[in-house]
Nucleic acid binder design. Structure first.
Lengths: 336, 336
DNA sequence: CTGAAAGCGCTAACAC
DNA sequence: GTGTTAGCGCTTTCAG
């Protein structure tokens, strides 16, 4: 069933039917009713291809998703995506995720831009230097960076305050009297990891504490590597008395490592993990730096993206949300 | 840059340029060269909307993905998806995942079918009674069921042999002398869970063993519920001496529960989990029923889907792969 | 081998 | 209020 057939069926012109369907005001109530009824009866739905072609936009937004890093597996990411699609559904728009091999990532961005297959993109997991953002900026294609990056021109982004989050954690740990602090980081190419580490280093300096580089471990982004990182810290001559883990998958591994090593968490070692912790950690309430409202954040991002598409300048679409420190049972004064 | 402009630039007609670009034979070599060169130079790429509209197909395949169940978080699923997109990339086609709220799932199927936004769909995580499959079948829309379902008419599906996998596990456990066997199942609405449980029950009967319903626990699909399920089994008067877990996320939780309870795995209790086990289980090699070649399976499924689109009858597109038992260090004869 | 023209299904000026 | 007509950018008869 297409517009023309539906129009003939009703004895009207395509125009009128189209107008009635799209809620234009200049159509009589009676006509509109009849059209809507007929559309329902015949299961009519506008062909999105044709519609997009005529309109120049698709009402579809996208995320290009390189498979491999285990972060579709990341529950936080899923919550955000859920928020996005729920928000879009309400407006009759939609979200698509294009899973691609890592090698094809940038090429896919180019395809999407040239082909205008979507009205805008969300760029997740930003890197310190991010060629995707450089590309989209240059192409003047609408996008929201989910996380900041180093880029001279203004661009639209949404992020949580990495420095503030680490600040909260450090303040608490230093307040408890810790002096030997460790940090387990994701790869430092990732912007959030970089910023969190910088904030850590800055806080140490502010506190007049020397940095022990043995306590700084990077490149952990999953359970296994988080587990190993904590083992490495435990093996140090004089262990750190408190450890911050900058991502929650590593956090699960790290806490697991403490449990398996029989370390009394919160007594021998204090731990704070960035990100909500998952189920089953033997019932331990891990202290976390939480990014509240993941779903709302997702909704906000698509809202920003739509504003961008409609012409709002990117410079005014930059939003920084505050994380919160949620105290669990993994904090205490240093042991010795 | 669009076709017309490119054609004008070259002083040719749109037709010729289109033909050259699409590899039609009736165009002279010299012309083709010039066209391809110009296309590259000007970064020309056909507008996919227009192309799809004219052609009646998009070369895009889809997966509609209800968010909530934590299975985008499922590493196995990701491996399969990776295989799919890699296979499609090679042919210049692509895969999209449409994440939707659970409430909107069926409506989205209808949209996709009516709008012909994709040439075909993969339906994952099939249920025993699956309305999505009923709908697609009736609408005669091309799809591959990833997992079987109860459906009278022939439909195209890809699956691993659930009965055979459980058979392997049971044979091994019974061979070791186990008589009190437990099964931790996903929700039995899911087809794989149903089939695996049926196979379990059948194997018990074949062995002349009575079924202890306390040992049958269902509705576990994540770490937490798997953990609880195992705790429940451990609390039984006379514990089972061997347990099969029918999905790997629950398996992680279940093994974790054993570790936390101080149960010696492989001695006090033997365990087999369906699905590859993740990292960090304190170095334990869990015995698994493995579905080998996830990526190849994904590739095969899109291949089947393309065949279907091109007219191969669904009845001849049904493929059953065999799982394998991979022995780890979690098996032994019953304790008592 | 190349081009003119029709058509995919829809929207949007521009009349009436 | 409603209809006519001209596109959106591409492919594909049908002529030459």
């Amino acid at each position: 069933m297409n517009l023309e057939r539906l129009a003939n069926l009703l004895g009207m012109s395509k125009t009128t039917v189209s107008r009635a369907l799209n809620g234009y005001p200049e159509v009589s109530e009676r006509t509109r009713e009849r059209v809507l009824q007929a559309a329902r009866d015949n299961g009519y739905q506008a062909n999105p291809m044709a519609r997009s072609l005529a309109l120049g936009r698709s009402n579809v937004f996208g995320i290009i998703y390189p498979l491999q890093p285990a972060d579709l597996g990341d529950a936080m990411f899923l919550d955000v995506v859920a928020g996005m699609s729920a928000a879009l559904e309400q407006e009759g728009k939609s979200l698509i995720i294009a899973p691609v091999s890592q090698a094809a990532e940038l090429a896919t961005y180019q395809q999407f831009v040239r082909g205008r297959r979507v009205d805008g993109l969300i760029v997740s997991r930003t890197q310190v230097q991010d060629e995707r953002i450089a590309f989209l900026s240059k192409a003047r294609f609408p996008f929201i960076a989910h996380g900041r990056t180093e880029h001279h021109a203004p661009y639209a982004w949404f992020d949580y305050d990495n420095a503030a989050g680490i600040g909260l954690a450090m303040q608490r740990l230093l307040g408890l009297g810790h002096r030997r602090l460790g940090l387990i980081s994701a790869p430092l190419l990732l912007n959030f990891a970089r910023q969190r580490k910088d904030a850590f280093v800055a806080a140490m300096a502010d506190a007049g504490l020397a940095l022990d580089t043995r306590y700084l471990i990077a490149d952990t982004l999953d359970r296994r590597s988080g587990y190993q990182a904590m083992q490495q810290l435990l093996a140090c001559q004089s262990r750190p008395t408190a450890v911050i883990v900058d991502n929650h998958l590593s956090g699960v591994g790290a806490v697991r490592a403490l449990l398996d090593a029989g370390v009394r968490i919160g007594e021998e070692i204090s731990v704070i993990v960035w990100g909500r912790m998952e189920d089953t950690l033997a019932g331990i309430a891990v202290s976390t730096i939480d990014q509240p409202d993941a779903a709302r954040a997702g909704a906000r991002m698509v809202q920003m993206l739509q504003a961008l598409v409609e012409g709002t300048p990117a410079a005014s679409l930059q939003e920084l949300w505050q994380p919160a420190l949620i105290e669990g049972a993994t904090l205490g004064p240093p042991a010795s």
